[in-house]
């Protein structure tokens, strides 16, 4: 059984058809990258999956259950988790407290403290734990938010541009982090512009263009596809 299935998903913003009959299937255990030019509807698709937007028509099926009508927090309880495009950390709170808020619903007392320490170690943020999250570097904020997202032990992790604003080394480290999580059984769907990252982690790639699934395949197939190169260079209609 597939983990996530989008069936004929449609979303309009006024006259703009941002999600146009999208069909997408994620298999359990895969790392799937979603790419496409700006305005292709990638983030909107995430918001539909998360329940922040509701589709005009179509269905979202997660682990065999139709979750189209569920509220966001209920979808999180089913096993979804997300890292937003703009780092969504709790800026005024300490790094440690950020993780505590993410972890406290599954751990208590001394076990909670140990789990926070473990997560800080995994993210390499031990030295920053007492700092206010708003004072972290951009890359560290991204990691902290990834840390909060994976604290929920999700079955499907959604990453919206996890490496935006990162140096090549940081991007590579993030890729390794994603692969380690995947090795532990987590399915990952990532929106990413950085092709080095996509090449590093993606087992399958979907290209979104003007709200539609434009192409799908392995990274090599996608790179070799001249039509994909054309839309990135803005020649799709030429």
């Amino acid at each position: 059984m597939s983990l996530l299935e989008l069936r004929d998903l449609n979303k309009h913003f006024g006259g703009l058809h941002v999600t146009n009959a999208v069909n997408l299937t994620l298999e359990p255990g895969e790392i799937h990258c979603l790419i496409g030019p700006n305005g292709a509807g990638k983030s909107t698709l995430f918001r539909l999956i998360l329940g922040e937007h509701h589709p005009g028509s179509g269905e979202i099926v997660f682990a065999g259950e139709n979750i189209t009508a569920l509220k966001s927090f209920a979808r999180i309880h089913r096993g979804l988790s997300v890292k937003f495009q703009v780092p969504g950390v709790f800026k005024g709170l300490s790094v440690r407290q950020n993780l505590e808020i993410a972890l406290q619903s599954r751990h208590r007392g001394a076990e909670l403290d140990a789990e926070i320490d473990r997560q800080l170690g995994f993210l390499g943020l031990e030295a920053e734990q007492a700092q206010t999250a708003g004072n972290l570097s951009h890359g560290q904020k991204q990691w902290l938010e990834i840390g909060m997202a994976i604290s929920l032990k999700p079955r499907l992790l959604l990453l919206d541009e996890p490496t935006a604003g990162m140096s090549p080394e940081e991007t590579h480290m993030t890729g390794e982090m994603v692969q380690r999580l995947n090795a532990g059984g987590m399915t990952v769907l990532a929106i990413e512009h950085d092709m080095a990252f996509v090449r590093q982690v993606a087992q399958r790639v979907t290209v979104l263009h003007l709200g539609q699934v434009f192409a799908q395949g392995s990274i090599d197939e996608i790179v070799a596809d001249e039509r994909v190169a054309a839309i990135y260079l803005g020649q799709a209609h030429a």
């Binding site: 922040e52 927090f73 969504g88 808020i101 619903s105």
Partner: peptide, 16 residues
Amino acid sequence: VAIRENPERAEMLGYD
């Protein structure tokens, strides 16, 4: 306080 800081993030950690 998490809701004060970032309601969207709080909801996406599974809090109603």
